Amino acid sequence: MADRDGFDMPPTSIAALQALSIAARRGEPRAPKLTPGALKLLEQLLAAPELAATLSISALAKQHDVNASSLTRLSHALGLTGFKAFQALFRADATTGAFYSTRAERLLDLGQIPSDGDYPVQRQTLWQEEMGNLSRTAERLDEAMLARAARALIDARRVHVVGQRACFAGAHYLAYYLGYLRSDVRLIDSLGGINLETGRELGEGDLVVGISYRPETRVSVDYCRQALDQGARLLALTNQETARLATMTDMTLLASAEGPFFFNPMSSLFVTIEMLLSHMAHEMGGDAVASIRRREALIARWQIE
């Protein structure tokens, strides 16, 4: 039930949970009594709702460097019956389709980006966070996994690259330059509505590269699932270990995408793709050079600019 200060106890939505957080930070009399640590944890969870919606209580506690009991105590302090009821608020929010707008609203309300017109400060903040994403991606890079992915791209009979919406830019970038290094590369797009039909040609010996960030696009997931059902392998490029594509394969490369930006930061994805292509070219050696020269000769012949 909403009280006279305009927030619900216990909260029944993410919006209500956010209002409680703001009230607690301001020290309003009717706000829930949270310890500094509990309030900080709540704000961190609201800033990364996708993790709160998908991770188990133990994994979420590890992510935020707290004990699982801290999440249970926070849930009770908010008037909820336990962690499952708390997590249900995040899961319900994840299905509404308003991911970007609610994320932007929370970032502004929680003061994580400047909202007073100080744009140089905001740009500097975004720059620093993107540098952090690149650093985290490099630090967490599994060299053995990178080598496996490069070898899979080299050895595959056919390669299909699928990434919709915001991830289409990365998919196009990868598919375009893969075409310099090898043949039988296809970029899957939405033109003509024949996505799943084109996947019918995939089978044993083929590879599909799925690129997907939350909110994951269903057609990308469906395409990769169909390819797997037909015997192809899957290489997933994503920003979370818990992403649906990552759970469908044992070959995943993670690109960090955190920070105070309304949409998913993509810098680390492109750097990951560059590292993958570079590793692939290194493994191919002279064959890579010969393939690139053939492509360049074709471009020159047709005077493509």
Rank of each mutant, 00 (worst) to 15 (best):
P114M: 06
P114C: 04
P114K: 09
P114R: 12
S115N: 07
D116K: 07
G117W: 01
G117F: 02
G117R: 05
D118A: 13
Y119G: 00
P120S: 06
P120L: 06
P120G: 03
P120Y: 08
V121N: 11
Q122Y: 07
R123L: 13
R123W: 14
R123D: 09
Q124S: 12
T125V: 15
T125I: 15
L126D: 00
W127R: 12
W127P: 00
W127G: 00
W127C: 08
W127K: 09
W127A: 13
W127T: 13
W127I: 13
Q128T: 13
E129W: 15
E129H: 15
M131G: 10
M131Y: 03
G132E: 06
G132D: 07
N133P: 03
N133Y: 12
N133A: 04
L134Q: 03
L134S: 02
T137F: 07
A138H: 07
A138T: 09
A138S: 10
R140F: 00
R140P: 00
R140W: 00
L141K: 10
L141S: 10
D142N: 15
D142M: 06
D142E: 08
E143H: 13
A144W: 00
M145C: 08
L146A: 10
L146H: 09
A147Q: 14
A147K: 12
R148Y: 04
R148D: 08
A149E: 02
A150Q: 07
A150D: 04
R151S: 06
R151T: 11
R151D: 05
I154D: 12
D155F: 00
A156P: 04
A156C: 03
R157P: 01
R158P: 01
V159D: 03
V159R: 01
H160R: 10
H160F: 09
V161D: 01
V162D: 02
V162I: 15
G163K: 05
Q164T: 11
R165D: 01
A166E: 03
C167Q: 08
C167T: 10
A169I: 08
A169R: 09
G170L: 02
G170M: 02
G170D: 02
G170E: 02
A171F: 05
A171S: 03
A171D: 02
Y173S: 01
Y173G: 01
Y173N: 09
A175Y: 10
Y176N: 09
Y176I: 00
Y177W: 15
G179V: 05
G179W: 02
Y180T: 08
Y180M: 11
L181N: 08
R182A: 10
R182P: 05
S183Q: 14
S183I: 01
V185D: 04
V185T: 09
R186F: 14
R186I: 02
L187T: 01
D189H: 13
S190A: 14
L191E: 08
G192T: 09
G192A: 05
G193V: 05
G193A: 03
G193H: 08
I194L: 14
I194A: 10
N195R: 13
N195D: 11
L196C: 06
E197F: 10
T198P: 01
T198K: 13
G199Y: 11
R200Q: 14
